[in-house]
Simulated assay, not measured.
Amino acid sequence: MKIVAVIGAGSMGNGIAHTFAQNGFTVKLIDVSEDALEKGMTTIFTNLDRMQNKGSITAEDKMKTISNIICYTDIEDGVVGADLVIEAATENLDLKLRIFKKLNEYCSHNTVFATNTSSISITQIASVVAHPERVIGMHFMNPVPIMPLVEVIRGYNTSDEVSQFIVTLASKLGKTAVEAHDYPGFVANRILMPMINEAIETLYNKVAGVSEIDNVMKLGMGHPMGPLQLADFIGLDVCLSILNVMYDGFKNPKYAPCPLLVNMVNAKKLGVKSGEGFYDYSENKKAEKVSKQFQQN
């Protein structure tokens, strides 16, 4: 396998593109938005510069990685000739189904389709593809170039050959593949999102403030990042979407999103991506407006 197409140039998509390109693959990075592609490539440049400054790569490595990435705004042009297509679009079922219907039309029957979904059913996504045995979940962690885990999720029809191919491929990228079955949230988010949601509930019930909740989990539980700060980095809209998928899938109230999370997403307070979430990133991450609000009587 030599050519990989990545659909979506956001934080996950550009990270996936970076990782494959750095490992010698030709990457076709696809996004309908030229602005998104420009921002994605800027992020890749910035991350490679940081790696070079730390001495983990050379200037030659950096330029070779960049030269391995080709950008496209047309999905049909972008996926032509790809051996593997990885969809890394927004966590929205309808959008993913539209993309996979196009892939079914544009790609050969030998092309392997992977989705970076963090919660949506692989089997449901594969239902719009003529050969669903070639569809699999390949859930990378953010930031992709650094995090060693790839959660590999087999759909109901995913073949043994495709599953083994993806596990082997992850190893070639320097990642560790952990296989999971196709249930809402898989393993990572089935455990993580209820914890984040409970942290938000703790804030909502005024048990403690933002920094206090995060410090308890960092200092007492050994977490490198508190759950509220982590939610900001994931994106509160993404957290809400994943919780809704799990709530719809299991019909269990423990997965119901906290009203505070719903209100913050409605108010466009999405975390790092919007400049403000549980922390205010527009002021060097020093202000904690949400925390102060809940500390006032």
Rank of each mutant, 00 (worst) to 15 (best):
G8M: 11
G13M: 02
G15E: 06
F20V: 00
N23W: 06
D31S: 09
M41L: 06
M41C: 03
M41H: 09
T46W: 12
D49V: 11
N53P: 03
K54N: 00
G55S: 03
T58A: 03
K64L: 15
S67A: 12
I70S: 13
C71T: 13
G78C: 01
V79D: 00
A82I: 07
T90K: 10
E91L: 04
L95K: 10
A114C: 07
T115D: 00
S127N: 07
A130G: 13
E133D: 07
E133H: 14
G137N: 08
G137L: 09
M141K: 09
I146F: 15
P148G: 02
E151D: 08
S159H: 03
D160A: 06
V167W: 15
V167Q: 08
L173E: 02
A177C: 03
Y183F: 12
V187H: 14
N189D: 01
N189Q: 02
N197A: 12
E201N: 15
E201D: 15
T202F: 15
K206V: 13
I213F: 15
K218F: 12
L219H: 15
G226E: 10
Q229A: 11
A231P: 08
L236D: 08
L236N: 09
S241M: 02
A256D: 01
L261G: 00
M264A: 07
K273S: 05
Y281K: 05
S282F: 13
K286E: 13
K286Q: 09
F294H: 05
Q295L: 14
